[in-house]
Computed example of a mutant assay.
Amino acid sequence: MNPISSLVFVLLLTVFPTQILCQTALMEQACRYTTYKLLCLETLAPDPEAQSATDLKTLVKVSLKYTENQALDIDNKILQLIKSATGDVKPVLNNCSDKYLIVVEKIQAAEASLGYNDVAGAKTWLKDATTNRNMCDEGFKGKPFKSPISDMTTKLGQMQSNAESIIAHI
């Protein structure tokens, strides 16, 4: 566990002790299924819908909502970067913008599939989102510049992995 994640968790416990300690049995169960447990708790614990959840499906919906928001944030960041980009980085960012529109659509499709109790469909849509996210990342490989969105895309991948891990237990 990295120091920043530990600090955030301690702060969450300090600010919301009863909500986190009393309402987290299901959240803790769900997050035990994930690779990025602390990120899972950081995502779910402050959310009112997650706090009142009575099933894993609700927690997955919340997790996917935040995953979608992260993808939208990345797309907005890419659009900002394109405005000031020059040289070889601009076409790579344009490609990423196209891919992230698809990533957002695929995450939204996964959310819709869950709404229809189509777990298999949700898994498929999320795999498609990963494929498009990876296509963006591939554009930066072998270039003389680093991806300006790599930290954000790493977090998105972790958030999506957490959602997929919980979905596997519905």
Score class of each variant (00 low, 15 high):
residue 142 G to N: 10
residue 55 D to P: 05
residue 160 Q to R: 10
residue 17 P to S: 13
residue 124 T to C: 07
residue 138 E to N: 09
residue 108 Q to W: 00
residue 152 M to S: 10
residue 107 I to P: 00
residue 71 A to W: 03
residue 125 W to M: 07
residue 106 K to E: 15
residue 168 A to I: 02
residue 129 A to E: 04
residue 155 K to M: 12
residue 107 I to W: 00
residue 32 R to G: 15
residue 110 A to L: 03
residue 51 Q to F: 03
residue 60 V to N: 09
residue 39 L to E: 11
residue 128 D to H: 08
residue 121 G to H: 14
residue 60 V to A: 07
residue 67 T to R: 08
residue 41 L to Y: 01
residue 144 P to E: 14
residue 155 K to G: 07
residue 137 D to W: 01
residue 33 Y to S: 13
residue 96 C to E: 04
residue 4 I to L: 12
residue 104 V to R: 01
residue 107 I to Q: 01
residue 151 D to C: 05
residue 52 S to T: 08
residue 125 W to P: 00
residue 62 V to D: 09
residue 42 E to V: 05
residue 114 L to C: 07
residue 30 A to D: 11
residue 36 Y to S: 14
residue 151 D to L: 14
residue 119 V to M: 09
residue 132 N to E: 13
residue 68 E to F: 02
residue 105 E to G: 02
residue 108 Q to M: 03
residue 67 T to G: 10
residue 39 L to P: 01
residue 133 R to L: 13
residue 74 I to N: 03
residue 48 P to C: 08
residue 59 L to I: 06
residue 63 S to G: 09
residue 82 I to S: 03
residue 145 F to S: 10
residue 138 E to A: 13
residue 165 S to D: 12
residue 3 P to K: 10
residue 89 V to D: 03
residue 110 A to C: 06
residue 56 L to A: 07
residue 62 V to R: 05
residue 133 R to I: 02
residue 51 Q to V: 03
residue 119 V to F: 08
residue 122 A to Q: 09
residue 23 Q to L: 06
residue 29 Q to D: 12
residue 6 S to Y: 05
residue 26 L to W: 05
residue 125 W to F: 14
residue 80 Q to W: 07
